[in-house]
Computed example of a mutant assay.
Amino acid sequence: MQETRLDTARIRLARQVIDPIFLDTPLYRCEALEPQLGCSVSIKLETANPVRSFKARGTEVVASLLADRGSRAVVCASAGNLGQALAWSGRGRGLDVTVVASRFATVAKLDRIRALGAGLELVDGDHEMARERAAAVAQRDGIRLVEDSLDIETCEGAATIGLELVDARPSFDTVLIALGGGALATGVGHVMKALAPEVEVICVQPQGAPAMTLSWRRRRVVTTDSTDTIADGVAGRLPIPAVLDDLLLTADDAVLVREESIIAGMRMLHDHAGLVVEPSAALGIAAILEDRDRFAGRHIVTIVCGSNVDADAYRRWIGAAGLHRS
């Protein structure tokens, strides 16, 4: 394969510094989903850990490097999951963590960031404004800025998921990956292309936050003025050029899905897999729902990437009746 910024040897080394609690997550075939989807479906479950998302795989690598170098302070912008993960990883290594987030971020995510001991600064804007503010704080205070997807450690930490998927081969032929900033997609995609190139790598993004997908399709950075999606974890407007360059080498396709399909995917994962997930984690199921013919007869792996969701919003999305069905 052509070279990305990622390195397979470094990805293998990353496993040695990531707390084992985030590694070797469950991967299992979920036959209960299959009659409605028309294909074999396996779930890679990245929610059964202290921060309920895959993000700590990357922040464990970042925090380990910072601690080794004697750094004591770090700041990041986050829609919620990265902030929780950095707070958890930093707390265990004596780092002073500051998280900048939108005032409109999911309350449950913000509460958890505070509970993990990080400082939290809120901005009156979206995630891109939080990124700008985090950069300003880092420059003002002379501390490390962690930029999700741009910092290679976040991508290579996420890529350890790919190593675990490769170990399970050859049972699946397609992997569906939520696409936001790109750390998960480029990380897992790099490993697939390097070690299992026959596996099709398909990225999935909401129609209401299409910037990275449009950029992938046009092979150049495409920005949007706003986002409109319940999938807050992937709601970026300004793709990072270096990450797009990697994505162009690691993704076979990038698709957009409707909000109603995301909600239907969340409901299916609840009703048939017993999983409470945030909208970003249902993107893979949404992609199958929207194009059953494409995936018919295949064995799909979908990465369930997070479960930090506001309880009231979740009830509205999947419906009170759905919560009580047996």
Rank of each mutant, 00 (worst) to 15 (best):
D7V: 11
T8M: 13
I11T: 09
R15N: 13
D19G: 02
I21P: 00
L23C: 08
L27D: 00
L27G: 00
C30R: 10
P35L: 04
Q36L: 14
L37K: 10
L45D: 15
L45K: 11
E46L: 07
N49H: 07
S53N: 03
K55V: 04
K55P: 02
A56V: 09
R57G: 00
E60C: 15
V62G: 04
V62I: 15
S64D: 15
S64V: 10
D68M: 10
R69Y: 06
A73V: 02
S78E: 11
L82N: 13
L86H: 11
S89T: 08
R91I: 00
G92A: 14
G92Q: 14
V97T: 01
A101M: 14
R103W: 00
K109T: 02
K109M: 06
L110V: 09
R114H: 04
A115R: 13
L116N: 00
G117R: 01
G117Q: 08
G117Y: 07
A118P: 01
G119R: 15
V123F: 05
G125S: 10
D126E: 13
D126F: 05
E128Q: 11
R131P: 04
V137G: 03
A138W: 08
Q139S: 14
Q139A: 15
R140D: 12
D141T: 00
G142V: 06
I143V: 13
V146S: 08
L150V: 09
D151F: 10
D151M: 12
D151K: 07
T154C: 12
A159T: 15
L165Q: 02
D167V: 08
D173M: 07
T174M: 01
A178F: 11
L179T: 05
L179W: 07
G180T: 06
A183C: 13
L184Y: 11
T186M: 14
T186E: 14
G187L: 14
V188W: 06
V188P: 08
V188H: 02
G189I: 04
G189M: 05
H190T: 14
V191C: 08
K193T: 14
L195Y: 03
P197C: 11
E200N: 08
Q207L: 15
G208S: 08
A209I: 00
P210C: 09
M212Q: 05
M212D: 11
M212R: 06
V222Y: 08
T223F: 06
D225M: 04
T227W: 01
T227V: 15
T227H: 04
I230W: 02
G233F: 05
G233P: 01
V234T: 15
A242H: 12
L248F: 09
L249W: 05
T250C: 08
E259H: 03
S261K: 07
H272D: 12
V276D: 00
E278R: 11
E278A: 03
S280H: 06
G284I: 09
G284N: 10
I288D: 03
D291H: 03
A296L: 02
G297N: 01
H299D: 09
I300Q: 02
I303N: 07
C305G: 04
G306E: 01
S307C: 07
N308M: 00
V309E: 02
A313S: 14
Y314A: 02
R315Q: 15
H324K: 06
R325N: 12
